[in-house]
Design a protein around this nucleic acid. Structure first.
Lengths: 389, 389
DNA sequence: TTGTAGGCGTTATCAC
DNA sequence: GTGATAACGCCTACAA
């Protein structure tokens, strides 16, 4: 930890100010001077002191990315996409919250401490009003400090949570937990919104990229119903999380439309995580409850693989004896046995967009909220039930 | 960005120094004083200025983690484990190099600029002497600056690359590209090494957690040979990378022991990445080359899934017509069709150990190098060839 | 136990 | 164009 700006300046025979200007590049400097400076930098192997420049410039080149677990493909893919957009001008600080509200808050504070240029919060939110309020407060402080905040994969914050914003912000509010776009029943609205126009998020606001979990789940259940299934089990994700609930909502909307809602409660079991063991145990629990369903939906593809494994271990064939479907369409789902019917969410492009939004390289959508569409992918794991063959 | 240490000090009626001491906690402060300070911090919602304290203390709480691609489970799992160990006292800066040597160097410089407390470099290295030299120089500067450096999943640096270290370092060198432990043919050596003792890496050195790729690959090929296979195809990873070469080395060692090395060249094809398309195309290429192999080994499980897909599309059954095996034992490999025979590398525990090493929470192994074992996992994708049934 | 003061390495505002 | 010279906010001997 030796060579500093001053050393370079001395060697190049210029002032520290000039060196700084050459390095930051945002100020005119004579060609030959810049040449000498650059040579001195080379010779001395000088490396800028990040903390020092961050202090002086009151801004750092760190971008925080909050994920539940970076090893989970759902988050890994999004984080990778964010990183791809950030490139090497900024650094991505990845924080594994493990889905814990407390850690989410802790990390947000840590990122504020680092004076992060932006923060991307990925994945579903915990539906606790108290936590939402605390989260909103943290996020608000972050934006007030000049950081851009992007929510990717969760519904927008309620206005109360982030405190009344500008006049334009008022138009953004949605009822707690109601997914925008999905609730309207239509195609997810989303207009690129060129430049810096477009409601909050343009500057100092929070931009949200919500996922159409409800719509996707609804279409998936409709698919099963159309195949002839009437008793459809559901191994849901952890309770009190927006992703879990929205998917369940869509499922139930489809059931209700066909008057099949009565059994829904008995056919639903909540896992404790979006992982394979959770699916395995969930499936066993479902079988234990009596009349077996003819199809089982899972919280996501990983859970679905656990479900398949459990069914197989119980001597049931998928999809001959029982259909199974997942959600998210992870890369390996097509190679699973059997290839999973699922709902694709364009995680990579959503993450990339979140990254651009975080860098301000893309304008915020109108109202600061856009909904990412979800597409039904039918593969081999779903088929008509016995009665329909 | 308003409230500073001074503000808190004023509100608490103490000096800035006292507030600093309360916050860092590494200095005795009277109970009631600390109480008042803490209250002031709460009331003012004070958040430390990271860059400022990093500047003053000449150290930051950032830990860099270099990966090829965080969306790849191989890296995602290790990164997640590293993150789990560093918890929320330090922040993980994840850098996607995409396997590019240049970006690897760029990121290392960026991390040095941030005065990262430690850097964990994961995955195989590019086997270019020039790059190795440049890499060694960067790593050396990092360690000289007080950062801990941990290599996880690649062989140790040659001593020339990192410049002559202390006397103890001399014992660590291995011939370029020769994997320690594996080459010896015995079980991977590894002694925890309590405390701060144990060769380089204890302070200012580079600690290496090498993977036993060679040994794992050798055992995998031996397994196939023992099943009766004689023509074994190999869809390798990108050339000039240690992981690719070490696995290929192990494969050939096993072939050579049975006098089967003659066809090896013609049965090997290099992919351009450790991904599915690479496996798909590699398998087709292999089939195109004439006499089809009775088994195909893949660079890793992801590639193996691509191989299986290609074979299936060509009307071949796995493993009836042709056996397939992967490497790494990713979580989903057991759910693939058919369940993959593979070699398990304990990525999570290796990553966790790398994390502890990076924090100095665990002593360096003797010589600064430990080898992570690889275990053969036999599943359904490998079976005897037709001739043996 | 607490306060004082100097410095950490850059950036930005002025003059020249 | 380039050079002084204040901040920037915190840490840490050194004193009291």
């Amino acid at each position: 930890m030796a060579v500093t700006l001053a050393d370079v300046a001395a060697r190049a025979g210029v002032s520290a100010a000039t060196v700084s200007r050459v390095l930051s590049g945002n100020y005119p400097v004579a060609a030959h001077t810049r040449g000498r400076v650059l040579r001195a930098v080379e010779e001395l192997e000088y490396v800028v002191n990040g903390p020092a420049s961050a202090l002086a410039a009151a801004s750092s080149d760190l971008v925080g990315v909050l994920v539940n677990d970076i090893a989970d493909p759902f988050f890994g893919i999004m984080a990778s996409a964010v990183q791809g957009e950030i490139g090497d001008r900024k650094l991505a600080v990845v924080c594994n919250t493990g889905g814990s509200p407390e850690r989410e808050l802790t990390y947000l504070t840590l990122l504020q401490r680092q004076r992060a240029a932006a923060v991307v919060v990925t994945g579903g939110a915990v539906e606790d009003p108290e936590h939402q309020a605390a989260l909103g407060a943290r996020l608000k402080r972050l934006t007030e400090g000049g950081a851009r905040v992007v929510l990717c994969g969760r519904p927008p914050m309620r206005d109360e949570a982030v405190g009344g914003g500008t006049g334009a912000a008022g138009a953004t509010g949605t009822a707690a937990g109601t997914e925008p776009g999905a609730a309207a029943g239509g195609a997810p609205e989303d207009v690129p919104g060129g430049g810096q126009v477009g409601g909050r998020g343009a500057d100092g606001g929070i931009v949200t990229l919500a996922f159409d979990n409800t719509g996707g789940a609804r279409r998936l259940t409709e698919h099963l119903i159309s195949l002839g299934h009437r008793r459809i089990g559901y191994v849901a994700g952890p309770a009190h999380r927006t992703t879990t609930r929205h998917r369940l909502d869509g499922h139930r909307q489809a059931l209700e439309a066909r008057g099949l809602l009565a059994d829904a409660e008995a056919l639903t079991v909540h896992g404790w995580a979006y992982d394979r063991p959770s699916g395995y145990d969930g499936a066993l629990e479902l079988l234990r409850r009596g009349t077996a369903p003819t199809a089982v939906l899972a919280a996501n593809d990983t859970v679905a693989l656990g479900v398949c494994a459990a069914l197989r271990d119980q001597g049931l064939r998928v999809p001959e004896d029982i259909s199974v479907a997942g959600f998210d369409d992870f890369p390996y789902s097509v190679d699973a046995y059997p290839a999973l019917t699922t709902v694709r969410i364009p995680l990579h492009s959503a993450g990339a967009r979140a990254g651009r939004l975080a860098l301000g390289r893309e304008g915020a959508p109108p109202g600061g909220v856009a909904t990412v569409p979800a597409e039904l992918i039918v593969r081999a794991s779903t088929a008509p039930p016995h009665a329909f063959r």
